[in-house]
């Protein structure tokens, strides 16, 4: 049985019809055309599908879309403003934190949710925060560097916006 749900994604209101068994990741990608969140494993182990739901980073393959009725979601597409990359995206670019890029949207959203609550993280805290995200290319070094850099930037460390 289809049910109609209202969700706000990246600040925009949507009304979609979903089967209860449809995962959030499938609605984002297949119904709304937001293909930024990637599918790696679909069983909660890789983090490529990470989005922000109700202010916290979650794996969107581990949530049914029906559960999100009346709530707010932010995906990687929602970070850039007026064509300007978000400091996290810019830092990933500047530090070569992406190679094939498959893990990147999930990494950035995991870091985004983490930095919202921990604006002054230590290197160990950053590593702990991305423990749910797998990257098969970079060896993680540059990803940790990028998040460190973005944290400073977001604190107004070097330049303001």
């Amino acid at each position: 049985m289809l049910r109609e749900i209202n969700v706000k994604v990246n600040g925009k209101d949507y009304q979609v019809k979903v089967e209860p068994r449809t995962l959030l990741i499938h609605v984002l990608r297949d119904t709304l055309g937001l293909t930024g969140a990637h599918i790696g494993c679909v069983v909660g182990k890789c983090g490529a599908c990470t989005v922000l739901w109700q202010g916290r980073q979650v794996k969107s393959c581990m949530v049914f879309a029906a559960q999100t009725a009346g709530t707010e979601i932010v995906t990687i597409e929602g970070l850039a403003e007026d064509g300007h990359l978000h400091p996290l995206q810019q830092a990933f670019w500047d530090t070569d934190a992406a190679e094939c890029g498959y893990c990147t949207p999930g990494m950035i959203m995991a870091a985004y949710g983490f930095l919202l609550r921990n604006p002054h993280p230590s290197e160990n805290e950053i590593k702990h925060a991305i423990a749910g995200n797998l990257c098969r290319c970079t060896g993680y070094r540059n990803i940790v560097e990028a998040i460190k850099k973005a944290a400073i930037e977001l604190q107004g460390g070097k330049s303001h916006g």
Binding site: G47, R56, Q57
Partner: peptide
């Protein structure tokens, strides 16, 4: 709790 699962799983 710090060693339980990962950040995303702990959030839900």
């Amino acid at each position: 709790v710090r060693v339980l699962a990962d950040g995303q799983v702990r959030n839900l």
